[in-house]
Design a protein around this nucleic acid. Structure first.
Lengths: 204, 204
DNA sequence: TCAAAAGTGTTAAAGCTACACCCATGG
DNA sequence: CCATGGGTGTAGCTTTAACACTTTTGA
C-alpha cells in the first residue's frame, strides 16, 4: 500500500486516489511487490504506474498485517512526495488528485495510513527539510510559505517564516526573479540539496 | 526481526542478543509470524519467548526486504522496552543481555536496525515519555536521570533535568521514600500513565 | 494612481544553559 | 563527624511569538 502527496499553485495538499464506482468513496493506490524485488523499488514502481510520479521522495510509513478469508497479507505503506509540475507532467493512468481535506476513504486501514502520514509529514516540517520535495526546482518564499500552510492547514506569520527559512541556511538565492502580476517581483530560491535533512529518523 | 532494550541499576542500555558460536558476533532475536497472526502479536510473542520479557512497550521500527538463494523475506523490525526487573524476573531461554555500546552484530541489516533504534529512542526521549517504559513501577529522580544518561550516553545537568521532569507534569509524587545508604533518602515518583506520550508518531 | 503581493525590525515572553552549595542520613 | 547522594535558585542567552508599514511593479 502506498500513497502520494502533492502541492498545486492554488495550494492544497493533494493525495492520489482511485475512485470506486458504487459507494462514493476512494481507495489509495496499491500494488504487490514482485518476488525478489526490494520493497522500495516496488514502492517507486507503483508510484510511477499508479500515480504517474517519478523521481519522487519516498519514505516508508508503517507495516500492517491484514486478514481476509483466503489469505494473510503484510501491507507496507509509504509516503511519496512530488511537486505538482512533476506529477502532472507524466500520465497517471488510474489515480486522481484529491484535496486531502476532502477525500473520503472507504477502508479503515487506509484511513489510518492517511491520518498517520499527515501526522508524520506535519511533524517533519518542523525539524527536517522534507517540504522541499514538494516544491519545484526554484520557488519564491511566498510559495514555500503557502506550501507549509497547506500542509499544516494553518496560516503562518510571514516575517517569522522568512527569518527562520533564511536562518536555516538551506536556501540558495537565485539571480532570477519571478514576475507574476502587477506587483513587485519575487526573488527565486533553490533548495541546497546537500543540506537535505528529510531523512532524519529513517534508517540507511 | 526484533530486539530489546533494558536498563539496570548500574545503568547501561542493554540489548537482548543470541550469541553465535564461531565468530564472536551476536544476532538479534528473531522469529516468524504465524499465518493469520497480527504482526504486533507476533512481536510480543517473540519478545516473550526469546528474551523473556512480558507486558513491555512495543513499537514498530522499519520493514526491510531481504533475499537469499531460496527465498524472499519481508523483515519487520520492532523495539521492545522493559525495565530490568521485569526482564530478569522471567526465564529468557535463548537471549542474553549485552551493553549496547559493546555489542557487535554480525549482520549488516541488524546493525542498521540497532543504529536506527538508538537514533529513534534518543530522539523520542526529547519529545515523548518513552523513557518511563524502561523504569520500574516507582523510581527516584536520580534513577530516572541515570536512565536518560545511559540512553543518550552523555551526562545531564541535575537541576535542569529535575526542573524539566517536574514541569512536564507526568510525574506523580509518592508518599514513600527510598533509603539506600548513608545519605538522605530519595523521594519516589510514579509515572502518570494517563499522560503517556510515547506513541506520538505512531499510528493507531 | 491604484491594487496587489514582496519585503523588512522590534519588543516582550518563554525556554534553555551553566553553574555551586546546603541537607539528611547511616555508619 | 564524615562521607554520600539528595535536593535547591539564579543570571545570561537564545529562541519564539506577535505585530504594521514601505516597496516595487503592471495595468
Amino acid at each position: 500500500m502506498f500513497f502520494v502527496l502533492d502541492l498545486t499553485d492554488r495550494p492544497a495538499l493533494r493525495v492520489a486516489v482511485v475512485e470506486c464506482e458504487e459507494p462514493a468513496t476512494a481507495r489509495l493506490p496499491t500494488g504487490s511487490a514482485h518476488q525478489t524485488e526490494p520493497l522500495d523499488d516496488a514502492a517507486r514502481r507503483i508510484a510511477r504506474d499508479e500515480a504517474g510520479i517519478v523521481e519522487q521522495y519516498l519514505e516508508q510509513l508503517y507495516t500492517f498485517s491484514h486478514c481476509t478469508e483466503e489469505q494473510w497479507y503484510v501491507v507496507v505503506s509509504s509516503i511519496a512526495l512530488a511537486s505538482h509540475v512533476m506529477a502532472v507532467s507524466s500520465d497517471h493512468p488510474r489515480a486522481q488528485w484529491r484535496d486531502v481535506r476532502e477525500v473520503v476513504l472507504g477502508n479503515a486501514i487506509e484511513c489510518q495510513v492517511l491520518d498517520y502520514a499527515l501526522v508524520r509529514l506535519r511533524a517533519k516540517l518542523g525539524y527536517t527539510t522534507i517540504a522541499f520535495h514538494l516544491m519545484p526546482e526554484s520557488f519564491t518564499l511566498s510559495e514555500l510559505q503557502r506550501a507549509y500552510e497547506a500542509i499544516l492547514d494553518q496560516s503562518l506569520d510571514k516575517r517569522n517564516f522568512r527569518r527562520r527559512m533564511i536562518a536555516s541556511g538551506i536556501l540558495e538565492p537565485t539571480a532570477a526573479v519571478r514576475r507574476a502580476g502587477s506587483h513587485r517581483p519575487a526573488a527565486l530560491y533553490r533548495f541546497r540539496a546537500a543540506d537535505d535533512r528529510s531523512v532524519y529518523l529513517t534508517p540507511g
